[in-house]
Structures are given as structure tokens and as C-alpha cells.
């Protein structure tokens, strides 16, 4: 009897370890996973950025702007904590911040802004037409609102999702703003544990 129980336990353990026991993602999955649209933009150091250069890594994308002192820093500090919690696995993850305010997000502002979170974060900017395409491709709402009575001049209403692109360049997940850091960490670890084959 004891024997029988032990072998059952072994089978269950083997099953769990094999990864067949399907992991339930906490973020929203994109089914089926499609190739993530390219982001042919320039980073804050003036280097060309291409998603295709990040095969083998998980890329986390957030759309925002530096003149957003409230929500954007919250999302970025969440991502900073995600990277800290990933520990050594953070090397296999690239965080990318795409500007929704190309006029004001100058390279120098982006450099300073992002460095205060994590020096490995890349801030992307580029031609308005290219950016507009990126917003459309990723379903990001970007609406400029003039604020005549504010020292800001204008603000940008924008979507607050964080997107995950897997190691083969497929767009796999999105997390709504305010998703707990631990949920994002857990999902990223799952992507890293089971890299897609194709």
C-alpha cells in the first residue's frame, strides 16, 4: 500500500516538474501568439533600436512620457522592482519605454528620467509617423490634451498596459496598470522557464 502511494507521488512530482502542469498566467494572454510589430526607433543614447536584436530575451514594453510625474513613475518603479526580484534572470529581460510625447521626451530627459529607475531601461523615440504606427500596432491610446490653465501646457492621455514579448519575438502577454509586481515576476519567470521553440 505504501509502495503504491509513493509511486503515485513520484508520478505527480514528475508531472509538475516537467512543466506539463500548465502554468496559469496572471496577465492577459494573446492567443495565438503573433509576431510583435517591430519598433524601428532610437534609444536615449542615440542607438538604433530593433526588437529583432533581442531574440533570446523577454522584452517588456511600456508606453509613457517623462512629463508624467504620477502614473509613469509608478509603472517604471514597478518594472524596476520586477527586475530586482528576477535577480540573475534580469539579464534575460529588457525593459523598453516608448515615448508618447516625442516633442518633449528629448534624449537627455529620457536619460536622466530612466537612469533614476534602472540604467538598463531603454527609452525609445523616433519619427512621429513611425511612433503613430507603433501606437496603432500595439493598440495604445494616445490623445494629446491641451491644458490652457496649467503650467504643463498639455498632457497625454495614454494606455497603461505593460506588454511582454517572448524570446522568439512573439507578443505573448499584457498586464493592466496596477498589476502586482509579484504577478509580473511570476509570469516572466514562466516565460523564461519555457522558452518557445519556433
Amino acid at each position: 500500500m505504501k509502495h503504491w502511494f509513493l509511486s503515485l507521488l513520484a508520478i505527480v512530482a514528475a508531472f509538475a516538474l516537467s512543466g506539463c502542469g500548465t502554468y496559469e498566467f496572471r496577465g492577459t494572454m494573446l492567443q495565438p501568439p503573433n509576431p510583435a510589430p517591430e519598433l524601428p526607433l532610437t534609444d536615449q543614447f542615440g542607438n538604433d533600436f530593433r526588437l529583432s536584436n533581442y531574440r533570446g530575451k523577454v522584452v517588456l514594453v511600456f508606453f509613457g512620457f517623462t512629463h508624467c510625474p504620477d502614473i509613469c513613475p509608478t509603472a517604471l518603479s514597478d518594472l524596476k522592482r520586477v527586475m530586482e526580484k528576477l535577480g540573475k534572470d534580469a539579464e534575460k529581460v529588457q525593459v523598453v519605454f516608448v515615448s508618447v510625447d516625442p516633442e518633449r521626451d528629448t534624449p537627455e530627459l529620457m536619460q536622466r528620467y530612466l537612469a533614476s529607475f534602472n540604467p538598463t531601461f531603454l527609452g525609445l523615440n523616433g519619427d512621429r509617423a513611425v511612433l503613430e504606427n507603433a501606437y496603432k500596432d500595439y493598440g495604445v491610446t494616445v490623445i494629446r490634451r491641451d491644458l490652457p490653465n496649467s503650467g504643463l501646457g498639455y498632457t497625454i492621455d495614454h494606455s497603461g498596459y505593460i506588454y511582454a514579448i517572448d524570446q522568439v519575438g512573439n507578443w505573448r502577454l499584457l498586464w493592466a496598470h496596477g498589476t502586482p509586481v509579484d504577478d509580473i515576476v511570476s509570469d516572466v519567470q514562466a516565460l523564461l522557464r519555457n522558452p518557445p521553440r519556433s
Binding site: C68, D70, I71, T141, I143, R145, L147, N149, S150, G151, L152, T155, D157, H158, S159, G160, Y161, A176, H177
Partner: peptide, 16 residues
Amino acid sequence: ELHNVIMENNVMQMRP
């Protein structure tokens, strides 16, 4: 300034 952030359909809108 005094501001508020309104979240609608996961779109963040900041307003004085």
C-alpha cells in the same frame, strides 16, 4: 498645481 488622474478603460488621464 492640484491634479487628479482618472483611469478609463486603462487609459490614464491626468487633469488639473
